[in-house]
Amino acid sequence: MSFIRTFHGDVEPSTLGVTYSHEHIVCRPSYWVEQKADDLLLDDKEKSKLDVLDFKNLGGQTIVDATAIDYGRDVNAVKEIAEETGVTIIGTAGFNKSFLWNAPIPEHVKQVIGDFKTYYEWIETKSIHELADFVIQEIEKGLEGTTIRGGQVKFGTGYNRITPLEEKTLRAVAIAHHETKAPMHSHTEAGTMGFEQIELLKREGVNLENISFGHMDRNPDPFYHEKIAATGAYLSFDGISKIKYAPESTRIQSILDLVRKGYEDQILVSGDTARKSYYKHYDYGLGLENILGKWVPRFVEEANLNGFDGQHLINKFFIENPARCFSFKK
């Protein structure tokens, strides 16, 4: 028996529908607040909701909000967006990468985790099992003391390195995964350290078929992608629309290379839309509508030209694969 845990409660995987597998909807990361990096603060619920409605109007049904506690979640605002739009939203327990942790903890979070000055201090002070217990609570009881339960567990590592505290959170999240059966998600900075993460996860006894590796398109290396896919893991190409990192042709070629090698069942697609300048209704960016509205038609055309059934692959990446990837398998 399997199910998917959402802001609306537990649902059958078959009901998920068209899914963006990695987005951020409303968040105020304290690190970026301290840096006065306004572009990285998605702090207007109504503007975020308009982009979610654009997604819905193009046939979108579910969004995975990959915002962990250390990235400034606003759980109640996202819940309201889910209720007001009818879009299913999946929440995230766990952690992000370590450079975000040297920032003040908001008062409402201190009420949940204790009176620590920074996330770094919290993670350093607590044992692996204490951190795991916190993640388990967020899956089984609710995110940040609410009754809204998380639908996946997340950890992250930095660019070309894994710090001792990042390894600590990875191990805590692995324990929480074993306890709750929640699917896992990995932040890989610029697509690096996937192999090293895999070795650590294997030591923790994690079945890699239960994890998605984020930001794979930031490191468009066919050998790297194939080796990760061979473990059974999902690869998340979640940088769609970010031409500053690579043209869409690079992403599409990377995806089609994996399809040729037989890994079409392990590919996820999304935008990681985490800046005002990426959102249409904040700062006139391409918005949440861009993937379904423009990228999908282009992908279908290119896939067809390369001898594939483009629409079949889109159904895999946005419907069938997310329904499996984000399932709790009891």
Rank of each mutant, 00 (worst) to 15 (best):
M1F: 14
F3I: 06
T6K: 03
E12D: 10
V18P: 02
Y20E: 05
V26E: 04
R28W: 02
P29E: 00
P29N: 00
Q35H: 09
L42S: 02
D43Q: 05
K45G: 11
K47L: 12
L53I: 11
K56Y: 13
D65Q: 09
A68T: 11
D70Y: 06
D74H: 02
N76Q: 15
N76H: 13
A77H: 05
E84C: 12
T85E: 13
T85R: 10
I89L: 04
G94N: 00
N96M: 05
F99P: 11
P104M: 01
I105K: 04
P106M: 02
Q111G: 06
F116P: 04
Y119A: 04
K126C: 08
I128K: 12
L131A: 12
G145Y: 03
T147R: 13
V153N: 01
K154D: 00
G158E: 14
N160Y: 09
L170T: 09
V173F: 06
P183C: 05
M184Q: 13
E189I: 10
T192G: 02
I198G: 02
L200P: 05
L208S: 03
G214Q: 00
G214Y: 00
N219F: 09
F237P: 00
D238S: 03
D238H: 05
G239K: 09
I240D: 02
P247R: 08
P247E: 09
S249M: 03
L258Q: 08
E264C: 12
V269L: 15
V269C: 11
S270T: 06
S270H: 08
D272L: 03
T273W: 10
L288P: 05
N290M: 13
G293I: 02
V300N: 05
E301Y: 10
A303E: 14
N306Q: 15
F308A: 09
G310V: 04
L313S: 06
K316C: 14
F318W: 15
R324F: 05
C325S: 14
